[in-house]
Amino acid sequence: MMENDSPMVKITNIHKVFFPDMHVLCGIDLEVKKGETVAILGASGSGKSTLLRCINFLEEPTAGKVVVDGITIEAGEKDKLRNGRIRDIRKRTGMCFQAFNLFPHMTVLENIIEGPVTVLHQKKEAATAYAEQLLQWIGLSEKRDEHPSRLSGGQQQRVAIARSLAMKPKVMLFDEPTSALDPELVGEVVEVMERLAKEGMTIIAVTHELHFARDVADRILIMDNGNWVEQGPPEKIFNNPEQERTRQFLAHIL
């Protein structure tokens, strides 16, 4: 799709071993171009969430290299400035969690401006103005001063997306964003993700949501036991998979 740009996210030979010998990721490579939407699918326990969390170092990779928007971090470096660079990556990547993880002691608005004000040192007024735009964009302007506990799961996840977007990230990471939701609430969250993709955001999503994978993603990657099984455009993966393992997995979720 995009031509000759350097990739927004580039992961090289990532290994993750949990002590003493649980090999969760076995030398994973991944390149995601600017503006690309990538969906990672795979059975639970296959390592997809761990991979996603290695991109912003919520999980420390055991070996390998991560480059996000030109910032390079290698596993196991001993560098005083490393934590600062990890934070630089985190400022450029938004992350949405399965359990939303909104801050329960803050209102919706406070949740959204927390990052810009505390981390980016923006003026509160400027951050609030942008937060209000975001609230309108996700369709929750009227919930501005509510606490998260008074929102439905779908609304909470939309606020969580807005909280990430308030940092004006270059990449959005979604870690099973709809798995904790009641079926009738999935649609509203996927709809927000779809609009985000259409507006050109670079997205890496671990998800089992079929509509998103099939119709929104530019590329699908299938993971099994810490290795890629197969990747390609959705039509190919869904209609004409090459690997037997992909076929088995799709048979389970379709």
């Binding site: 938004g94 801050f103 927390e114 505390t118």
Partner: peptide
């Protein structure tokens, strides 16, 4: 919940900011 720390970290907060604010 550790998810609170993760969410704060994902926003790029330092350890002391996370402690103080979240």
């Amino acid at each position: 919940d550790p998810g609170q720390t993760e969410a704060a970290n994902a926003l790029g907060m330092t350890r002391s900011q996370t402690m103080k604010r979240i």
